[in-house]
Amino acid sequence: MKKTLLLVTLCCLCLGFTFAVSAGEKKASYNIALAVYGTKGEYVQMWINAMAEHPAVKSGLAKTTVFDGEYSHIRQDDQFNTIIAQKFDAAIFIPIDSTAGGATVKKSVEAGVPVVGSNGPVTSDLIVSYIGSDDVEAGYLVGKAVIKAMGGKGNVVILEGPVGQTGPMQRGEGMLKALAENPTVKVLESKTANWSRNEAMDLMQNWLVSHHDQINGIFGQNDEMALGALAAVKSAGIQPVIPSAGIDGISDAVRAVSRKEMLISVRQDAFTQSQGALDIALRHLIGPEYKPMSECWKLYPEMPWGDGTAKLYSVPWTIVSPDNADKFLEEER
Protein backbone atom coordinates (compact mmCIF):
# COMPACT_ATOMS: atom_id res chain seq x y z
CA MET A 1 0.00 0.00 0.00
CA LYS A 2 2.74 2.36 0.98
CA LYS A 3 4.53 1.54 -2.25
CA THR A 4 1.47 2.38 -4.32
CA LEU A 5 1.09 5.66 -2.51
CA LEU A 6 4.73 6.46 -3.14
CA LEU A 7 4.35 5.61 -6.82
CA VAL A 8 1.27 7.80 -7.19
CA THR A 9 3.07 10.69 -5.49
CA LEU A 10 6.05 10.21 -7.76
CA CYS A 11 3.83 10.13 -10.84
CA CYS A 12 2.12 13.35 -9.75
CA LEU A 13 5.47 14.96 -9.23
CA CYS A 14 6.62 13.87 -12.67
CA LEU A 15 3.42 15.15 -14.24
CA GLY A 16 3.89 18.41 -12.42
CA PHE A 17 7.34 18.74 -13.87
CA THR A 18 6.10 18.00 -17.35
CA PHE A 19 3.48 20.68 -17.09
CA ALA A 20 5.99 23.10 -15.71
CA VAL A 21 8.22 22.57 -18.72
CA SER A 22 5.47 22.62 -21.31
CA ALA A 23 4.30 25.87 -19.79
CA GLY A 24 7.66 27.25 -20.90
CA GLU A 25 8.95 28.00 -17.43
CA LYS A 26 12.67 27.86 -17.15
CA LYS A 27 14.12 25.11 -15.04
CA ALA A 28 16.91 25.62 -12.58
CA SER A 29 18.62 22.52 -13.81
CA TYR A 30 18.50 20.31 -16.91
CA ASN A 31 19.11 16.57 -16.94
CA ILE A 32 21.23 15.58 -19.91
CA ALA A 33 21.90 11.96 -20.85
CA LEU A 34 25.30 11.21 -22.35
CA ALA A 35 24.74 8.10 -24.48
CA VAL A 36 28.26 7.08 -25.55
CA TYR A 37 29.10 3.94 -27.50
CA GLY A 38 31.57 2.64 -24.93
CA THR A 39 33.84 3.95 -22.23
CA LYS A 40 36.87 1.73 -22.65
CA GLY A 41 38.84 3.87 -25.09
CA GLU A 42 40.97 6.84 -24.12
CA TYR A 43 39.10 9.14 -26.49
CA VAL A 44 35.67 8.69 -24.94
CA GLN A 45 37.23 9.09 -21.49
CA MET A 46 38.65 12.45 -22.55
CA TRP A 47 35.25 13.36 -23.95
CA ILE A 48 33.52 12.49 -20.66
CA ASN A 49 36.16 14.23 -18.56
CA ALA A 50 35.83 17.37 -20.69
CA MET A 51 32.07 17.32 -20.11
CA ALA A 52 32.58 17.30 -16.36
CA GLU A 53 34.61 20.49 -16.74
CA HIS A 54 31.90 22.36 -18.66
CA PRO A 55 30.93 25.58 -16.83
CA ALA A 56 27.25 24.67 -17.03
CA VAL A 57 27.91 21.31 -15.36
CA LYS A 58 30.05 22.94 -12.67
CA SER A 59 27.42 25.57 -11.95
CA GLY A 60 24.70 22.94 -11.75
CA LEU A 61 22.72 24.24 -14.74
CA ALA A 62 23.18 20.86 -16.40
CA LYS A 63 23.22 17.51 -14.64
CA THR A 64 24.79 14.82 -16.80
CA THR A 65 24.48 11.05 -16.61
CA VAL A 66 26.71 8.73 -18.64
CA PHE A 67 25.16 5.71 -20.36
CA ASP A 68 27.86 3.25 -21.43
CA GLY A 69 26.70 1.56 -24.63
CA GLU A 70 29.29 -1.21 -24.25
CA TYR A 71 30.04 -1.15 -27.99
CA SER A 72 26.64 -2.58 -28.87
CA HIS A 73 23.85 -0.89 -30.80
CA ILE A 74 21.19 -2.96 -29.03
CA ARG A 75 22.55 -1.84 -25.67
CA GLN A 76 22.43 1.79 -26.76
CA ASP A 77 18.90 1.42 -28.08
CA ASP A 78 17.77 -0.10 -24.75
CA GLN A 79 19.41 2.73 -22.88
CA PHE A 80 17.39 5.24 -24.86
CA ASN A 81 14.24 3.53 -23.55
CA THR A 82 15.54 4.27 -20.06
CA ILE A 83 16.43 7.83 -21.05
CA ILE A 84 12.90 8.35 -22.37
CA ALA A 85 11.29 6.71 -19.33
CA GLN A 86 13.32 8.86 -16.95
CA LYS A 87 12.29 11.96 -18.91
CA PHE A 88 15.71 13.40 -19.50
CA ASP A 89 15.54 16.89 -20.97
CA ALA A 90 17.94 16.00 -23.80
CA ALA A 91 20.42 13.36 -24.87
CA ILE A 92 23.88 13.70 -26.38
CA PHE A 93 24.50 10.69 -28.57
CA ILE A 94 27.72 9.07 -29.81
CA PRO A 95 26.44 6.09 -31.78
CA ILE A 96 28.33 2.84 -32.31
CA ASP A 97 26.50 2.39 -35.62
CA SER A 98 25.47 5.45 -37.57
CA THR A 99 22.80 3.72 -39.66
CA ALA A 100 21.10 1.79 -36.88
CA GLY A 101 21.35 4.82 -34.61
CA GLY A 102 18.90 6.67 -36.88
CA ALA A 103 15.93 4.64 -35.61
CA THR A 104 17.03 5.24 -32.03
CA VAL A 105 17.08 8.99 -32.61
CA LYS A 106 13.60 8.85 -34.17
CA LYS A 107 12.21 7.00 -31.16
CA SER A 108 13.75 9.46 -28.73
CA VAL A 109 12.65 12.60 -30.55
CA GLU A 110 9.09 11.28 -30.95
CA ALA A 111 9.00 10.64 -27.20
CA GLY A 112 10.01 14.23 -26.56
CA VAL A 113 13.71 13.85 -25.79
CA PRO A 114 15.74 15.89 -28.28
CA VAL A 115 19.08 14.41 -29.40
CA VAL A 116 22.37 16.16 -30.15
CA GLY A 117 24.91 14.12 -32.11
CA SER A 118 28.59 14.23 -31.23
CA ASN A 119 31.84 12.62 -32.39
CA GLY A 120 30.30 10.01 -34.71
CA PRO A 121 27.65 10.84 -37.31
CA VAL A 122 24.17 9.35 -37.12
CA THR A 123 21.99 8.89 -40.18
CA SER A 124 19.00 11.00 -39.18
CA ASP A 125 17.67 14.46 -39.94
CA LEU A 126 15.79 14.59 -36.64
CA ILE A 127 18.82 15.45 -34.53
CA VAL A 128 19.08 18.99 -33.20
CA SER A 129 22.62 19.29 -34.49
CA TYR A 130 25.79 17.28 -35.01
CA ILE A 131 29.19 18.33 -33.75
CA GLY A 132 32.03 16.15 -34.92
CA SER A 133 34.97 15.81 -37.24
CA ASP A 134 35.08 14.33 -40.71
CA ASP A 135 36.80 10.94 -40.58
CA VAL A 136 37.32 10.88 -44.35
CA GLU A 137 39.39 14.02 -44.04
CA ALA A 138 41.46 12.55 -41.19
CA GLY A 139 42.36 9.52 -43.29
CA TYR A 140 43.23 11.82 -46.16
CA LEU A 141 45.53 13.93 -43.96
CA VAL A 142 47.37 10.82 -42.73
CA GLY A 143 47.79 9.55 -46.27
CA LYS A 144 49.01 12.91 -47.60
CA ALA A 145 51.56 13.41 -44.82
CA VAL A 146 53.07 9.92 -45.06
CA ILE A 147 53.21 9.99 -48.86
CA LYS A 148 54.91 13.39 -48.72
CA ALA A 149 57.52 12.06 -46.28
CA MET A 150 58.10 9.14 -48.66
CA GLY A 151 58.92 11.57 -51.45
CA GLY A 152 55.77 10.59 -53.30
CA LYS A 153 56.85 7.06 -54.18
CA GLY A 154 57.21 3.62 -52.65
CA ASN A 155 54.97 1.16 -50.80
CA VAL A 156 52.70 1.56 -47.82
CA VAL A 157 50.86 -0.69 -45.40
CA ILE A 158 47.48 0.22 -43.86
CA LEU A 159 46.39 -0.78 -40.35
CA GLU A 160 42.62 -0.85 -40.31
CA GLY A 161 40.17 -0.48 -37.44
CA PRO A 162 37.53 -3.11 -36.64
CA VAL A 163 35.83 -4.45 -39.76
CA GLY A 164 32.36 -3.05 -40.46
CA GLN A 165 32.35 0.04 -38.21
CA THR A 166 31.63 3.49 -39.63
CA GLY A 167 34.78 5.27 -38.37
CA PRO A 168 37.35 2.91 -39.87
CA MET A 169 35.46 2.74 -43.16
CA GLN A 170 35.51 6.52 -43.54
CA ARG A 171 39.13 6.87 -42.48
CA GLY A 172 40.02 4.16 -44.99
CA GLU A 173 38.11 6.03 -47.68
CA GLY A 174 40.18 9.14 -47.02
CA MET A 175 43.42 7.16 -47.19
CA LEU A 176 42.42 5.68 -50.54
CA LYS A 177 41.66 9.21 -51.75
CA ALA A 178 45.21 10.29 -50.90
CA LEU A 179 46.57 7.20 -52.64
CA ALA A 180 44.48 7.85 -55.74
CA GLU A 181 46.21 11.23 -56.05
CA ASN A 182 49.59 9.47 -55.97
CA PRO A 183 49.23 6.46 -58.25
CA THR A 184 52.92 5.59 -57.96
CA VAL A 185 52.44 4.64 -54.30
CA LYS A 186 51.38 1.02 -53.89
CA VAL A 187 49.52 -0.59 -51.00
CA LEU A 188 51.41 -3.74 -50.02
CA GLU A 189 49.09 -4.84 -47.24
CA SER A 190 45.88 -3.64 -45.60
CA LYS A 191 44.47 -5.52 -42.67
CA THR A 192 42.66 -4.96 -39.38
CA ALA A 193 44.48 -4.79 -36.08
CA ASN A 194 41.25 -3.94 -34.23
CA TRP A 195 42.45 -0.58 -32.88
CA SER A 196 44.95 -2.55 -30.75
CA ARG A 197 48.58 -1.61 -30.25
CA ASN A 198 49.69 -5.13 -29.44
CA GLU A 199 47.87 -6.66 -32.42
CA ALA A 200 49.37 -4.05 -34.74
CA MET A 201 52.84 -4.82 -33.40
CA ASP A 202 52.47 -8.51 -34.26
CA LEU A 203 51.05 -7.72 -37.68
CA MET A 204 53.83 -5.28 -38.53
CA GLN A 205 56.51 -7.74 -37.38
CA ASN A 206 55.08 -10.29 -39.78
CA TRP A 207 54.91 -7.80 -42.62
CA LEU A 208 58.50 -6.73 -42.02
CA VAL A 209 59.47 -10.37 -42.53
CA SER A 210 57.36 -10.96 -45.64
CA HIS A 211 58.26 -7.65 -47.29
CA HIS A 212 61.79 -7.08 -45.97
CA ASP A 213 62.75 -3.51 -46.73
CA GLN A 214 59.96 -2.75 -49.20
CA ILE A 215 57.70 -0.93 -46.73
CA ASN A 216 58.22 2.82 -47.00
CA GLY A 217 55.21 4.17 -45.13
CA ILE A 218 52.66 3.23 -42.47
CA PHE A 219 49.04 4.47 -42.41
CA GLY A 220 47.39 3.92 -39.03
CA GLN A 221 43.64 4.37 -38.86
CA ASN A 222 44.25 5.26 -35.22
CA ASP A 223 47.26 6.19 -33.11
CA GLU A 224 47.33 2.97 -31.09
CA MET A 225 47.97 0.88 -34.20
CA ALA A 226 50.47 3.34 -35.66
CA LEU A 227 52.36 3.17 -32.36
CA GLY A 228 52.28 -0.64 -32.42
CA ALA A 229 53.68 -0.70 -35.95
CA LEU A 230 56.33 1.84 -34.97
CA ALA A 231 57.38 -0.34 -32.03
CA ALA A 232 57.82 -3.29 -34.40
CA VAL A 233 59.93 -1.15 -36.73
CA LYS A 234 62.09 0.02 -33.85
CA SER A 235 62.58 -3.47 -32.41
CA ALA A 236 63.60 -4.72 -35.87
CA GLY A 237 66.38 -2.11 -35.71
CA ILE A 238 65.28 -0.27 -38.84
CA GLN A 239 66.96 3.16 -39.01
CA PRO A 240 65.74 5.71 -39.80
CA VAL A 241 62.24 4.57 -38.78
CA ILE A 242 59.61 4.12 -41.48
CA PRO A 243 57.35 7.21 -41.63
CA SER A 244 54.11 6.50 -39.80
CA ALA A 245 51.05 8.53 -38.89
CA GLY A 246 47.85 7.94 -36.98
CA ILE A 247 44.61 9.56 -35.93
CA ASP A 248 43.20 10.76 -32.55
CA GLY A 249 46.12 12.57 -30.90
CA ILE A 250 46.36 10.31 -27.83
CA SER A 251 49.11 11.22 -25.39
CA ASP A 252 51.52 8.41 -26.31
CA ALA A 253 51.29 9.42 -29.98
CA VAL A 254 51.91 13.08 -29.21
CA ARG A 255 55.01 12.03 -27.27
CA ALA A 256 56.19 9.86 -30.19
CA VAL A 257 55.71 12.82 -32.56
CA SER A 258 57.60 15.07 -30.18
CA ARG A 259 60.50 12.55 -30.22
CA LYS A 260 60.27 12.64 -34.06
CA GLU A 261 59.64 8.91 -34.21
CA MET A 262 56.12 9.28 -35.52
CA LEU A 263 55.54 11.69 -38.39
CA ILE A 264 52.24 13.25 -37.32
CA SER A 265 49.09 12.46 -35.45
CA VAL A 266 45.80 13.90 -36.64
CA ARG A 267 44.25 15.11 -33.42
CA GLN A 268 40.57 14.88 -32.78
CA ASP A 269 39.34 17.51 -30.35
CA ALA A 270 37.43 15.71 -27.59
CA PHE A 271 37.09 18.93 -25.58
CA THR A 272 35.24 20.79 -28.33
CA GLN A 273 33.12 17.84 -29.44
CA SER A 274 32.04 17.28 -25.86
CA GLN A 275 31.55 20.78 -24.43
CA GLY A 276 30.20 22.12 -27.73
CA ALA A 277 27.49 19.45 -27.76
CA LEU A 278 26.28 20.49 -24.30
CA ASP A 279 26.10 24.16 -25.30
CA ILE A 280 24.04 23.18 -28.34
CA ALA A 281 21.71 21.08 -26.20
CA LEU A 282 21.22 23.86 -23.63
CA ARG A 283 20.63 26.42 -26.37
CA HIS A 284 17.92 24.16 -27.76
CA LEU A 285 16.26 23.75 -24.36
CA ILE A 286 16.55 27.32 -23.07
CA GLY A 287 16.22 29.35 -26.25
CA PRO A 288 18.09 32.18 -27.98
CA GLU A 289 18.96 33.93 -24.72
CA TYR A 290 21.33 31.10 -23.83
CA LYS A 291 24.90 32.11 -24.60
CA PRO A 292 27.51 29.36 -24.98
CA MET A 293 29.59 28.95 -21.85
CA SER A 294 32.41 26.76 -23.16
CA GLU A 295 35.76 28.14 -24.21
CA CYS A 296 35.72 25.79 -27.21
CA TRP A 297 33.89 28.30 -29.40
CA LYS A 298 36.91 30.60 -29.32
CA LEU A 299 39.25 27.94 -30.74
CA TYR A 300 38.29 27.73 -34.40
CA PRO A 301 37.38 30.78 -36.51
CA GLU A 302 36.11 28.37 -39.16
CA MET A 303 33.55 26.97 -36.72
CA PRO A 304 31.55 29.92 -35.31
CA TRP A 305 28.73 29.46 -32.78
CA GLY A 306 26.33 31.50 -34.92
CA ASP A 307 23.12 31.40 -32.92
CA GLY A 308 23.74 27.81 -31.87
CA THR A 309 21.25 26.28 -34.26
CA ALA A 310 23.39 25.15 -37.17
CA LYS A 311 22.68 21.55 -38.22
CA LEU A 312 26.36 20.75 -38.53
CA TYR A 313 29.36 21.90 -36.54
CA SER A 314 32.43 20.47 -38.21
CA VAL A 315 35.29 20.48 -35.72
CA PRO A 316 38.57 20.92 -37.60
CA TRP A 317 41.34 18.36 -37.14
CA THR A 318 44.65 19.56 -35.80
CA ILE A 319 47.84 18.10 -37.17
CA VAL A 320 50.21 17.32 -34.31
CA SER A 321 53.75 17.76 -35.63
CA PRO A 322 57.09 18.10 -33.81
CA ASP A 323 56.52 21.89 -33.88
CA ASN A 324 53.39 21.91 -31.74
CA ALA A 325 53.58 18.53 -29.96
CA ASP A 326 55.09 19.98 -26.80
CA LYS A 327 52.26 22.47 -26.52
CA PHE A 328 49.73 19.62 -26.43
CA LEU A 329 51.79 17.71 -23.90
CA GLU A 330 51.83 20.75 -21.64
CA GLU A 331 48.08 21.21 -22.00
CA GLU A 332 47.61 17.70 -20.73
CA ARG A 333 49.37 18.47 -17.50
Binding site: G41, W195, S196, N198, M201, E224, G228, D252
Partner: peptide, 15 residues
Protein backbone atom coordinates in the same frame (compact mmCIF):
# COMPACT_ATOMS: atom_id res chain seq x y z
CA UNK B 1 55.18 -8.51 -20.77
CA UNK B 2 52.12 -7.00 -22.43
CA UNK B 3 52.52 -3.66 -20.65
CA UNK B 4 56.25 -3.48 -21.34
CA UNK B 5 55.72 -4.39 -25.00
CA UNK B 6 53.07 -1.73 -25.59
CA UNK B 7 55.06 0.78 -23.41
CA UNK B 8 51.84 1.82 -21.65
CA UNK B 9 49.26 0.11 -19.48
CA UNK B 10 46.06 0.29 -21.53
CA UNK B 11 42.60 -0.16 -20.06
CA UNK B 12 41.34 -2.10 -23.06
CA UNK B 13 44.36 -4.41 -23.24
CA UNK B 14 43.87 -8.16 -23.27
CA UNK B 15 40.35 -8.04 -24.68
Amino acid sequence: ILTARTTSALTQAGN
